[in-house]
Deep mutational scan, measured.
Amino acid sequence: MSIQHFRVALIPFFAAFCLPVFAHPETLVKVKDAEDQLGARVGYIELDLNSGKILESFRPEERFPMMSTFKVLLCGAVLSRVDAGQEQLGRRIHYSQNDLVEYSPVTEKHLTDGMTVRELCSAAITMSDNTAANLLLTTIGGPKELTAFLHNMGDHVTRLDRWEPELNEAIPNDERDTTMPAAMATTLRKLLTGELLTLASRQQLIDWMEADKVAGPLLRSALPAGWFIADKSGAGERGSRGIIAALGPDGKPSRIVVIYTTGSQATMDERNRQIAEIGASLIKHW
């Protein structure tokens, strides 16, 4: 067993022997301040990774656009098919120029040779490549099948209805392509620590998230040296922004954090800054 596999296998073990965790309302004060600064709703939840206990939450059962955070769930569904012998990570998928959609920095470079399922998941999570996500959605049967996968996990809230990039439209009061912070946090925890996926697939999923290259201005910008984070960000229309993450000190994750916002007129930089400040408060009061 590799060191990384050992780390993920012992996530519940280490967490069980940690000192009790206590909620700190100071972080919620910052979440509410972010709402004021952005002029928009902000949803927040913080779960203990081992027990699933909610440590703090704000608007945990209000719907927010998922945006690209759905790509972690998508690759979880792909990995479940791999575990069941219905898919192979090494299978190569070929596609054409007509398949390319807006923001496809990886797939646009491989029109000639195609990409493997493993490479597509890596591109979808680490670079948020939209064509990679659409190609992977095709392998599982489309958005409705991802929703069905989530329902089978016990998540009857999260739903995907459309493809990239239309799913980022974020129309107010439109339930399409949305989740709730509580539902997303619980589902992410199941994917990373539950028995739904094999140990190898859980490790692969967290490795992809740990290698995320496009979430630097968010929670990662607030992390002290030595902290662990595996995350996936999302951005959408109407001032929408979000991030889902597993993080913790001492090089291992111990909490799940989900943050979503929508309806702001603020710039992307300002949305990023507010999420980073929430992260800084979380870490300060850990």
Rank of each mutant, 00 (worst) to 15 (best):
residue 40 A to D: 05
residue 142 G to M: 03
residue 41 R to S: 14
residue 178 T to Q: 03
residue 88 Q to A: 14
residue 102 E to Q: 06
residue 151 H to V: 08
residue 242 G to K: 02
residue 202 R to K: 08
residue 114 G to Y: 07
residue 45 I to G: 04
residue 176 R to P: 03
residue 210 E to C: 08
residue 74 L to T: 12
residue 237 E to V: 11
residue 99 D to E: 08
residue 200 A to P: 11
residue 228 F to I: 09
residue 282 L to H: 02
residue 219 L to V: 09
residue 62 E to Y: 06
residue 130 N to Y: 02
residue 151 H to L: 10
residue 149 F to L: 13
residue 77 A to N: 09
residue 44 Y to E: 00
residue 90 G to V: 10
residue 55 L to C: 14
residue 198 T to I: 06
residue 102 E to L: 08
residue 284 K to S: 14
residue 180 M to R: 10
residue 125 I to G: 02
residue 277 E to Q: 07
residue 143 P to I: 06
residue 56 E to W: 05
residue 151 H to N: 12
residue 186 T to S: 11
residue 98 N to C: 06
residue 177 D to M: 00
residue 232 K to F: 02
residue 29 V to D: 06
residue 83 D to G: 06
residue 197 L to I: 07
residue 115 M to L: 08
residue 278 I to S: 02
residue 47 L to R: 04
residue 52 G to H: 10
residue 114 G to E: 03
residue 108 E to F: 15
residue 62 E to V: 08
residue 222 A to N: 13
residue 79 L to E: 03
residue 73 L to I: 06
residue 218 L to A: 03
residue 81 R to W: 14
residue 284 K to Y: 11
residue 139 T to D: 15
residue 167 L to E: 02
residue 127 M to K: 13
residue 119 E to I: 02
residue 96 S to A: 10
residue 109 K to I: 06
residue 61 E to P: 01
residue 45 I to Q: 14
residue 133 A to G: 11
residue 245 A to Y: 01
residue 284 K to D: 11
residue 85 G to A: 07
residue 270 E to C: 11
residue 46 E to Y: 14
residue 197 L to P: 04
residue 238 R to K: 05
residue 267 T to G: 11
residue 77 A to E: 08
residue 121 C to I: 05
residue 69 T to F: 02
residue 163 W to P: 07
residue 259 I to F: 07
residue 47 L to I: 14
residue 264 S to W: 04
residue 33 D to Q: 12
residue 70 F to R: 02
residue 126 T to F: 02
residue 146 L to Q: 05
residue 231 D to R: 03
residue 237 E to C: 14
residue 181 P to L: 03
residue 67 M to D: 11
residue 81 R to F: 07
residue 230 A to C: 09
residue 187 T to L: 07
residue 85 G to W: 10
residue 51 S to I: 09
residue 237 E to D: 09
residue 106 V to Y: 15
residue 124 A to W: 03
residue 80 S to I: 10
residue 85 G to M: 07
residue 166 E to R: 13
residue 283 I to K: 14
residue 110 H to G: 12
residue 105 P to F: 08
residue 217 P to E: 10
residue 31 V to Q: 00
residue 175 E to M: 12
residue 76 G to L: 05
residue 68 S to N: 03
residue 147 T to N: 06
residue 103 Y to R: 04
residue 243 I to M: 15
residue 162 R to M: 05
residue 148 A to C: 08
residue 108 E to C: 15
residue 81 R to D: 05
residue 213 K to V: 06
residue 262 T to Y: 07
residue 75 C to T: 15
residue 226 G to A: 09
residue 94 H to G: 07
residue 30 K to Y: 06
residue 128 S to R: 02
residue 137 L to I: 13
residue 83 D to I: 03
residue 116 T to W: 03
residue 65 P to F: 04
residue 43 G to F: 00
residue 30 K to H: 08
residue 147 T to E: 06
residue 28 L to Q: 14
residue 194 G to S: 10
residue 39 G to I: 12
residue 156 H to F: 11
residue 137 L to A: 12
residue 195 E to A: 14
